[in-house]
Design a protein around this nucleic acid. Structure first.
Lengths: 247, 247
DNA sequence: GTCTATAGCAAGATAGAC
DNA sequence: GTCTATCTTGCTATAGAC
């Protein structure tokens, strides 16, 4: 794939500011001008990505369309991929917003879970084509875009927080030991749904909707049963496995 | 990334022969010369990929090392990514081979499943670094390298066949309706293990080994319990979901 | 500290001659 | 089927303006 740095390794390695450059430097609104440019480039990129797809949008085109020089785009974003981080942040915020009404009204665990998952897909929906084209980047273990990466920590923690709230705000009774791990497990389930959604070629991704409708009650049932003496050993086994495996 | 096709979409879209070109045309050994060149390019690519990694191996280097022109390499392989298909085929054959002794000796479902999974990872093991670098390609839904793609059908069917044998050769009793879907489900579990393995940064990927050791008995337990009156409804729900979702 | 302009490299991919 | 020449594009680098 590219990585044609020639001199140093891939993406970054120079001593240039990048993301650090115009980032808030302590006080309030410091570099207003820089932030504006940064945002302009990001917005333009997002627009073009959606219009033409990720691969078909060149850095030259983004710069031209935004009315800046290519070098300037690289001043703010270390690589083309780093532009996607903007998409991430926006999306995460929207998903939070979409979850709000559900979390504020529903009490039942199934309804909360179902609502949050559907809300998340609602948000992603218009970006299906675009998401498909850059998804491979996120799938790469070493990519900063990977949901497991250090760079994604902030987003990840916040999203897991949604699922903690799904659980906390509900009346469901859960196995005592399972409970603390459950938000993260639900987040994994969400990633699974997204993975399915990306591969879903059905019209309007209806299958993903059906997946959610089917999976939510199933998860609900399992979670409820987790503390029953019959499933206890299975729960135990699962927990042991998770503990061994986690980073 | 690359995809600098400029004219058409990404990878392929031309009317050129590619894979089709020198492929056997009905009779026995038809285009022997083409097959030879093709194989030479493929072998060279695989060697260089393993030696230097995927990204660090240029098409120019492959062509030069193989003693052919760049254009010639592109005559046989639509893109650099398409060269990975060779890796796939080889790997699948090796995995089959690794599964053989287990399937021929073990009778217990857990042992068979565990053995096949470990054997698969044994085969993949030496390619961890390489696999990591190209994994993103396989994760892309539209890629011919995706395990769900039409191009991967042959490999996919064969691998699912292994899990059918894991099941058939064992003495385990399974819910009547679940049974026909189980090989494919086990294959999905295998994909999950591979997904985990790719992201596994622990030394020698020990965590993946622990995952297998923990997951196999869990799966065994669930499969065994699937026909019990207590889990029956859950099994039902799961089956309904699967039927709705499948392609 | 922000930004432009421009030149240039490396590498994936293609065109068209032979 | 094969080659050479060329294109495209991600990315870097430099020199300098505001």
């Amino acid at each position: 794939m590219s990585e044609q740095s020639g001199a140093v390794g891939p993406a970054d390695g120079t001593g240039r500011p990048h993301i650090a450059g115009p980032r808030s430097s302590g006080a309030g609104r410091s570099t207003a001008r820089g932030d504006q440019t940064r945002q302009l480039i990001l917005d333009t990129a997002m627009r073009l990505f959606r219009e033409r797809g990720y691969a078909q949008t060149t850095m030259r085109a983004i710069a031209q369309e935004a009315g800046v020089a290519v070098g300037n785009a690289y001043y703010y974003f270390a690589s083309k991929e780093h532009l996607i981080q903007g998409f991430y942040r926006d999306t995460e915020v929207e998903i939070q917003a979409a979850a709000r009404p559900v979390l504020d009204t529903e009490r039942a665990f199934v309804a909360r879970l179902r609502g949050v998952l559907h809300g998340g897909i609602d948000v992603l929906s218009p970006s299906h084509e675009f998401a498909t084209s850059f998804f491979k980047t996120a799938a790469e273990p070493t990519s900063p875009l990977s949901p497991f990466s250090a760079e994604s920590t902030e987003t990840r923690v916040r999203t897991i927080g949604i699922f903690a709230e799904v659980l906390d705000g509900s009346s469901v009774r859960v196995d005592r030991e399972l409970r603390p791990m459950l938000p993260e497990l639900l987040w994994l389930a969400w990633l699974g749904v997204v993975l399915f959604w990306v591969h879903d070629r059905s019209p309007d991704q209806v299958k993903t909707r059906r997946l959610i409708d089917g999976a939510a009650p199933l998860i609900d049932r399992l979670v409820r049963s987790s503390h029953l003496p019959l499933l206890r050993p299975v729960t135990r086994e699962l927990l042991d496995l998770l503990r061994v495996i986690r980073p």
